[in-house]
């Protein structure tokens, strides 16, 4: 058999799950959709002593609109369920759009929304989206609950502030402001493949001037990168093509840290960032005006 042996637990409630995690400590690991963990175990790159499978915990899979316009997504909500949800498509179209770029249907049918954030793959869509949209994360353990902003939760490649006895339970996405447009842009070797570089933009307009312009990059550094130049240059301005070009140029040169691998050189990826930031900003501004 490919994976190394492990003990398996399949609790049906959150209370049981956090108890089991507390008991197992460093030997325990959460199994969510398994779409990242099981391949890693098949290679024996991961050899957890015990898995706590969240698959049977019904109370962790939901999409709940909140009174303040935000949406609460239970960690075990599968990517496909998020992508196809009517409320999400209407109120957070960028979430459905971004999720649709993850791998292939067979993987999105099983991969979980929260699991992707807990996994913190620098090439993954959902952690970057969570950072862009200022998502708040609910973390549970036998000590109770704590809340953390996605941007603080992700601390390195495949690294978060989660302790072994903790469980990511819920992701809350605050409402998008009025006159806001978002855009997802990536380049990958093939449809469904990991992005070589990607940018997600969120722009709020005030008439024909930019009020706020946020761009998060991923796959070009150790974590999702919240860039600063777009808002520094564009806030309060009428966004001319020249301004956007100059912002994109700056971000490609100074605000990302791509490496060189089989699929592309650092130089190539910096160039991709430049192109993708420009496309994302232009598209987001167009959408914000509608």
């Amino acid at each position: 058999m490919k994976p190394a042996p492990f003990d398996y637990y399949a609790p049906t409630t959150v209370a049981e799950a956090v108890e089991k995690l507390a008991e197992l400590g460093y030997a325990g690991k959460v199994l969510a959709g398994g779409q990242s963990l099981i391949p890693a175990m098949n290679f024996r790159m991961a050899r957890p002593g015990a898995l706590v499978d969240l698959g049977k915990i019904k109370e962790l899979a939901y999409i709940k609109p909140q009174a303040d316009g935000s949406v609460a997504i239970g960690t075990m909500t599968r990517d496909t369920a998020v992508e196809e949800d009517e409320f999400i498509r209407k109120n957070f179209p960028i979430v459905a759009e971004t999720v649709s770029y993850i791998a292939h249907k067979q993987i999105r049918n099983r991969g979980s929304f929260g699991g992707a954030i807990a996994h913190a793959d620098p090439a993954a869509q959902i952690p970057a989206l969570a950072v862009l949209l200022d998502a708040k994360l609910k973390v549970l353990s036998t000590d109770g609950e704590r809340w953390e902003d996605a941007v603080d939760f992700i601390i390195g490649p495949f690294m978060t502030t989660l302790e072994p006895q903790e469980l990511l339970a819920e992701v809350v996405i605050p409402p998008l402001p009025a006159n806001c447009g978002c855009s997802y842009q990536q380049v990958s070797r093939q449809k469904g493949g990991y992005a070589q570089a990607a940018a997600i933009a969120k722009v709020v307009m005030d008439g024909d001037k930019v009020k706020d312009a946020q761009v998060v990059l991923f796959s070009v550094g150790e974590t999702p990168i919240r860039t600063e130049q777009p808002n520094k240059v564009l806030a309060g301005m009428v966004p001319s093509t020249e301004l956007i070009e100059s912002v994109a140029e700056y971000v490609g040169a100074n605000e990302c840290d791509p490496g060189t691998d089989l699929h592309g050189t650092e130089e190539y990826r910096r160039n991709l960032v430049k192109v993708l930031v420009r496309r994302a900003l232009l598209d987001a501004i167009e959408r914000a005006k509608k």
């Binding site: 398996y8 099981i38 098949n42 067979q106 049918n109 099983r110």
Partner: peptide, 21 residues
């Protein structure tokens, strides 16, 4: 690829125990 509760999934990225029920 197989169907699990009507959805296409990869059977190699599941443990058999996850298919309980």
């Amino acid at each position: 690829t197989i169907l699990m509760n009507g959805q296409a999934v990869r059977s190699c990225t599941h443990f058999a125990v996850m298919a309980d029920g």
